[in-house]
Design a protein around this nucleic acid. Sequence first.
DNA 1: TCTATTGGTTTAATAATGCAACCATATGGA
DNA 2: TCCATATGGTTGCATTATTAAACCAATAGA
Lengths: 177, 177
Amino acid sequence: MQPHKRVIEPTPWRSQKDEVRAPGKNKDGKMVKRTSLEGNPCPIARSLDAIGDWWSLLIIRDAFLGIRRFGAFQRSLGLAKNILTVRLRALVDRGILATEPAADGSAYRDYVLTPKGRGLFPILVALRQWSEEFDEHPDEIATVLVDRAHRRPVRKLLLCADDGTPLAPGETMLAPR
Amino acid sequence: MQPHKRVIEPTPWRSQKDEVRAPGKNKDGKMVKRTSLEGNPCPIARSLDAIGDWWSLLIIRDAFLGIRRFGAFQRSLGLAKNILTVRLRALVDRGILATEPAADGSAYRDYVLTPKGRGLFPILVALRQWSEEFDEHPDEIATVLVDRAHRRPVRKLLLCADDGTPLAPGETMLAPR
DNA sequence: TCTATTGGTTTAATAATGCAACCATATGGA
DNA sequence: TCCATATGGTTGCATTATTAAACCAATAGA
């Protein structure tokens, strides 16, 4: 007996409803696109649509550390320049970064965080604290986030109710808006 | 005059040091790999290495909402089953999800959050709150996170110093560990 | 004026993702 | 008990994203 053979082309014995399409194409014959989360009603998905790839968040991180120039981002992150170009443009388009004349007076441009971009700080802190708490090799973590005035580690981010009492995940729920 | 022509193959006038390599290969002729953030000393990068793609965080989100079964994740997220398979396996491997016998007594398995996975909650909250505060179409956001007891929206995550005073991004810095 | 730096773009190759077909096992009902 | 359907995947292929390296125009520096 023959081993199973994959049927890709339409075959006579295949029923009408069991339609055969070329892989990589949908029923309209349109191209397959990487799914976008744009317009998703979930705010988490909406955020991920804007900054949900690593490079974007690492660029933001570096921006918080004071990096402003294209070349500096590239050297710091070690990513391909074409990717950096695309990412920076997307972040500017979304109002997370803005360009301005270079601080050193040259004809080049700096990339700086907008207020919307600075609003991402809690996300970076949350990512950092998760790693600090759960990473399997915490000894490999090089830095601690401290408050500049006293040089002491910051507190963990804490989710609180309206009245200030701390909330565990299970003590919360989603309500329609 | 001819338009510029791209030189990919080695040419006589090209110097020794200006070596020519096939694009997509490095100097050793090895395959191009997607960069991994594993072992990176930055804790943000380490977190992103574990959960830095959309689908993973959306799976986690659904897990917090009580979704446990393969098929339920797939229907909820609308992602391809092969991708879901890979993602779930990676999350289990990293100790973020675990499998256990299905709660309904069937022979299937449930995917449930581990303590490490539940530790991701602040990240999800931070993503949510950023969208709530800065999204251009906040009217499209369907839900609010409330505390279960009083049904009132939770507070914004607040970064605090050791002594409890709130900290802005600029009032923090990184110190070596 | 010449050279190096900066900030990209282009090309070719590989890796990741998406879609749909396929399949083995489990479940539910007649 | 038999059969149909649901579940939880795997496989194959097309498309898209990411990457490394070459290339280039404009700027800056000497």
